[in-house]
């Protein structure tokens, strides 16, 4: 019996020993290496910029040049920044340090020359300003760098889907003034402007602020011109087109791009494509900062999410930002 146990123990140990002999790969020291982080987490919306951190280090010689080649030329603002960033150990604050010069963008190609002071290893920021030409397209960027030893390394990103939607930020709506909002135009008009320029067909909702209606709390609201309950005091001309826009209030969608900061949650094309408005109201009321509403124009041409950045009861204003998608 004891003998059997001994054999068993030996067998188990042999197995363990064999497993321990598995091959491990050891990274061979390369003369020039690179890596990439995409720092921007939100969708690539036209007019925004996507930030990358491109790192490159040389074991042989020094890093001399870096370049990035986008599959679709970026808009103005695309290119390398001449600064790297480090965290100040005393204060914990990130500080810039110039590590590159001659940062140039020409068409799809952006280049930078690494300064002598930090030429063994460097991480540079590259910003891709999403251009109109990329709407709905897939964009990829090929990063590369060269060393004084004549070596070259490259890093090609996967393809990034650029959103089809538009975004506009910080529109101030003012009760009884710039309060008539057009999703198509992405701006607000006064009643006089709507009248003079015959824009009523383009107006999707009017912003009103009423602390109470019939003694009940009402507050800041977006109301379709077709609504018959809450905007009777506006005395809209009979000749106006009064489109029955549908609005669906939300309190839990804090889009970081519309908000400007704070949360890593985003509305993208798919959210606007998939949102349904079955039995949705023609108004959204009681709105406060960080809330909003999905809105669809009466003819279904646009679906939008309107985010409330701020409200002001005294000034009777509401600042909004919008993502909008043409769905028809």
């Amino acid at each position: 019996m004891n003998k059997n146990l001994t054999y068993l123990a030996v067998a188990v140990m042999s197995c363990l020993g064999l497993a321990a002999c598995e091959k491990t790969t050891v990274d061979v020291l390369q003369p020039l290496k690179n890596d990439l982080l995409k720092k921007t987490t939100g969708p690539a919306v036209i007019g925004t910029r996507v930030e990358f951190a491109y790192a490159i280090g040389a074991n042989d010689g020094t890093v001399q040049n870096v370049k990035a080649e986008a599959s679709i030329a970026g808009a103005t603002g695309t290119g390398f920044s001449g600064f790297s960033w480090y965290t100040d150990r005393a204060t914990g604050v990130d500080k810039p340090l110039q590590t590159a010069t001659d940062t140039v963008t020409n068409g799809v190609l952006s280049t930078a020359k690494i300064l002598d002071v930090s030429n063994k290893a460097v991480t540079l920021r590259y910003f891709y300003s999403v251009p109109e030409a990329a709407r709905g397209q897939v964009v990829s960027i090929k990063f590369s760098g060269t060393s004084s030893a004549g070596k070259e390394v490259t890093f090609t990103t996967p393809g990034y889907q650029v959103s089809k939607m538009d975004m506009v930020r910080s529109i101030v709506l003012e009760d009884a003034k710039k309060s008539y909002f057009s999703i198509a135009d992405m701006k607000a008009y006064t009643k006089e402007e709507v009248e003079q320029r015959n824009l009523s067909g383009k107006i999707d909702f009017v912003y009103i602020y009423r602390p109470t209606i019939s003694t009940y709390a009402f507050g800041h609201a977006m109301v379709s011109l077709a609504n018959k309950s809450y905007i009777t005091d506006l005395n809209l001309p009979a000749a106006w087109t009064k489109a029955a826009t549908k609005l669906d209030k939300r309190v839990d969608i804090r889009d970081a791009q519309l908000r400007g900061s704070g949360f890593d949650s985003y509305i993208d094309d798919i959210d606007l494509e998939k949102t349904t408005f079955t039995n949705a109201a023609d108004f959204a009321y009681g709105l406060a900062a960080d809330q909003g509403a999905f809105v669809t124009s009466a003819d279904g041409t646009y679906t939008a999410y309107i985010f409330v950045n701020a409200v002001n009861n005294t000034a009777k204003t509401m600042t909004v930002s919008m993502k909008r998608l043409k769905v028809k």
Binding site: I213, S214, Y216, A217, F218, Y230, D248, T278, N279, A280, A281, F283, Y285, G286
Partner: peptide, 9 residues
């Protein structure tokens, strides 16, 4: 239900 509630949804 509160004033203004859209009872259809």
């Amino acid at each position: 239900a509160k004033f203004g509630t859209n009872m259809t949804r």
